[in-house]
Design a protein around this nucleic acid. Structure first.
Length: 768
DNA sequence: TCACGCTCCCTTTTT
DNA sequence: GGGAGCGTGA
């Protein structure tokens, strides 16, 4: 079948392997049996994984037999790109290699074999907000006091149960006290709601595959034959369900490679089990273990500082971090007057760095809590610095976008009650709370779904003729949209059709008109966001949501770029619900990145600032007093510090508002764990403003220098016009998209191809 | 039925 | 500081 046969392709790969260190090389060359790669930060983890995959393929392993699992789409994409590039040099193709996130792997398995996994064929994935509202409904249905049972606490209890593969019945059988019994009751209600709505949550995407693989030998046999080589990234952050999926998938071929770093385990709070990586050798006694400790990313100073910090953790296997690079500059530890001063000092510093030649895309500001982005955003906007807040879902969390997506979900699956309830009277169309509760009541009393009940509204008791009419025309409208979903096409055409559908939904539902009527700045933004949603649909490249070749042990057909518009819509909705924060980091946009420390894992930047290094922020309040939690906080800072290639700044503010009141802060205990000879400290002087101290000038005036507005810019560069960019040369404007971060233009450059550029920042000139 | 305004409550990190 | 839920007036 897949007999390794040294051949010309393998030989062609040799030059690319010779650049590796002996340890890296041994990861690539290992054959047969489990392999654990203990990879410190910057040790070339992605390089060894991608070279290993390429090398397997060059040796004759069929690409479609290789499965690589990651935690973010970005990581998966990056790996795919690098594997393709490597194989290209050897005249081979990577087509068929499956590189995706754990969650999307689960979703695709279930999409392909819904019966085996016990889910409806057209299930939708609940996002965090939907899940919260489903939990709320369940709490109400379970007759619990919503004051003593918060959705957050119940939902994390259910999530923990699912991580342990306990369904509602199993959970209930173990529930002994008042609290766990209340959770059990809610769990039951929650599950029946999911079932009724043909929905699954994030945890189901991991739990169901694990359970099915465990309990169905026949299914397990099929899948273990399909994938003979498994590679897992960030293994330190896998939970029990993920461990089991991986463990069962490799139960036959046993070709599993896991890569991770226990010092970068930062998801314990959501069920990640650091024991998976620490006890890998116990689970697989024949495992080969290869440490990769040499750091090729950061300066010696940064590595020494991070090493000194992490040595304070007691629950840890000691290891030596060694830097291959130069010593570099000392870490800058800055203590500003308040949170505004901190943001201003950081921005002033970064502007200086930019002037001396580092592009914005190579800089990042990291923080423990997303709330910290606010003050940075204000200062950045005022100073005209291009930036992006890497919070994957933030665009899709806006009310108007959620409404529009609600309509789309409804048309993908009219049994999606969360979506239905959200949009049924948005914009207001005369189906108010009273009528709606009658509809719900009718559905609950019968065995019908809410959507079915809505088919004949006049039959519902207590619904006025007027409301019945409104319901009728609502149903008709949704049916009308649904009738256009049947046709098939190639991905490119489908994306065009999809954006037409989105446009139609926004127009015909009355959403666009509703906001256009408003006339305030906010309403205007909402209309722009709806426009952007249409562009996003058009930009969706399309995915094959079903995995080929699961049914039989044969080479799967891989040509699958034709499907129905409905499948395309499902694919898009799925991709929306599975975006990760770090997926938004895109160096080609040329902007500064703001993000949480958690989201920064796996990324790297020349210049990094970790802001808010204060007690009760980092470490966070909720971890103080809990030694294990403090160690996870320390690992979090370790992750942040090791993102930096050249320069690292750790900042804090002497005072910061907490719950509306300004409080004095204490510098993070972690800062005192960094050796003094590696740092250079500066503290704000009460008498001199930080700006004056750093710049020798007065602070820039508030609200000063603003360029032309986004709308004006858009009219200056109409679609189709020829423009010249100082770096990319001549190009033609393909699309103008208003975005929260600036007016974005897609431009097809004569020599550099299609680029996305923000008009506010790009020096663009119109030709002709 | 709907919009607006008031009050009260919470407050980490994410796929 | 902000969001959700509730009450009131149109």
């Amino acid at each position: 079948m897949d007999l390794p046969k040294p051949n010309a392709a393998a030989a062609a790969l040799q030059p690319y392997l010779s650049g590796l260190t002996p340890s890296q090389r041994s990861v690539v060359d290992h054959r047969g049996g489990p392999l654990l790669v203990n990879a410190g930060p910057g040790s070339g983890k992605t390089t060894v994984v991608t070279h290993r995959i390429a090398s397997l393929i060059a040796e004759g392993v069929a690409p479609w037999r290789i499965l690589g699992l990651t935690f973010t789409n970005k990581a998966a994409q990056e790996m795919r790109g690098r594997v393709e590039a490597l194989l290209d040099h050897a005249g081979l193709t990577a087509d068929g290699v499956l590189l995706c996130t754990f969650h999307s792997f689960g979703a695709r398995l279930m999409r392909t074999l819904p019966d085996d996994f016990g889910v409806p064929a057209r299930f939708v994935i609940l996002d965090a907000a939907d899940q919260k509202s489903a939990i709320k409904q369940a709490i109400r249905a379970a007759n619990l006091d919503p004051k003593s049972f918060t959705p957050a606490s119940i939902s994390s209890a259910i999530s923990a149960a699912k991580n342990q593969l306990k369904n509602a019945e199993a959970y209930e059988s173990e529930a002994v006290d008042f609290l766990t019994r209340a959770v059990a009751k809610t769990y039951h209600e929650y599950e029946s709601r999911l079932k009724m709505q043909e929905a699954v949550d994030f945890d189901d995407l991991l739990m169901r595959p694990a359970v099915a693989l465990r309990d169905q030998p026949e299914l397990r046999a099929r899948l273990t034959q399909r994938w003979t080589h498994l590679l897992i990234d960030e293994y330190q952050d896998t939970n029990f369900a993920q461990f089991l999926v991986a463990d069962l998938l490799v139960s036959e071929a046993r070709n599993v490679t896991v890569v991770g770093d226990p010092d970068q385990s930062i998801y314990g709070w959501r069920g990640a089990n650091i024991g998976n990586i620490l006890e890998f050798e116990t689970r697989y006694p024949d495992a080969k273990v290869i440490p990769l400790g040499e750091n090729f990313r950061s300066t010696k100073t940064i590595v020494s500082a991070a090493d000194a910090l992490i040595r304070n953790n007691e629950q840890r296997k000691p290891k030596n971090l060694v830097a291959a690079n130069d010593t570099g500059d000392r870490l800058r530890i800055r203590r500003s007057e308040d949170e505004r001063g901190e943001a201003q000092d950081v921005v002033d510093h970064l502007k200086q760095v930019e002037r001396s030649g580092t592009p914005w895309a190579e800089m990042a500001v990291l923080y423990r809590m997303n709330a910290l982005s606010r003050v940075f955003e204000e200062v950045l906007r005022r100073d005209g610095v291009p930036y992006i807040v890497a919070k994957g879902t933030s665009f899709f969390e806006r009310k108007e976008v959620r409404d529009a997506v609600g309509y789309l979900r409804l048309l993908a699956n009219p049994r999606d009650e969360v979506a239905l309830e959200r949009v049924v009277n948005m914009p207001p169309r005369g189906i108010g709370a009273t009528s709606w509760s009658r509809v719900i009541g009718e559905a609950r009393a019968s065995t019908q779904s809410v959507w079915e009940v809505m088919q004949s509204p006049s039959r519902i008791e207590g619904v006025s003729t007027r409301a019945a009419k409104a319901i009728e025309s609502f149903v008709e409208m949704v049916q009308g949209w649904r009738s256009s979903l049947g046709h098939t096409g190639a991905f490119e055409a489908l994306s065009r059709d999809l954006s037409d559908v989105v446009q139609r939904v926004i127009d015909e539902s009355g959403l666009a008109a509703h906001y256009a009527r408003g006339g305030t700045e906010e309403d205007h933004d909402r209309v722009e966001n709806l426009d952007e949603l249409v562009s996003a649909a058009a930009d969706f490249p399309g995915v094959v949501s079903e995995l080929p070749g699961l049914a039989e042990d044969a080479e799967p057909t891989l040509e699958h770029d034709v499907q129905t518009l409905e499948a395309h819509l499902f694919g898009w909705l799925e991709s929306i619900s599975l975006v990760a924060d770090s997926d938004l980091v895109d160096p080609t946009r040329g902007v500064l990145t703001l993000m949480s420390l958690h989201a920064s894992k796996g990324l790297e930047f020349e210049e990094v600032v970790v802001a808010g290094c204060e007690e009760s922020l980092l470490p966070h309040q909720r971890s103080i007093g809990d030694d294990e939690a403090i160690e996870e906080e320390r690992r979090l800072l370790f992750v942040g510090m090791t993102r930096a290639k050249k320069n690292l700044t750790l900042t804090s503010a002497k005072s910061r508002p907490v719950r509306g009141f300004r409080e004095s802060t204490i510098q993070s205990q972690f800062l005192s764990e960094i050796p003094e000879e590696l740092v250079e400290r500066w503290e704000a002087n009460e008498n001199a403003s930080a700006d004056a101290f750093l710049q020798g000038s007065s602070p820039s005036p508030h609200g000063g220098r603003r360029g032309p507005s986004g709308r004006r810019l858009a009219s200056l560069f109409p679609v189709g016009c020829l423009v010249e960019h100082e770096q990319f040369g001549v190009g033609r404007v393909e699309a103008i998209m208003p975005r929260p971060t600036g007016t974005t233009a897609r431009i097809d450059f004569r020599y550099d191809g299609v680029k996305t550029i923000i008009l506010e920042y790009a020096k663009l000139e119109r030709l002709e």
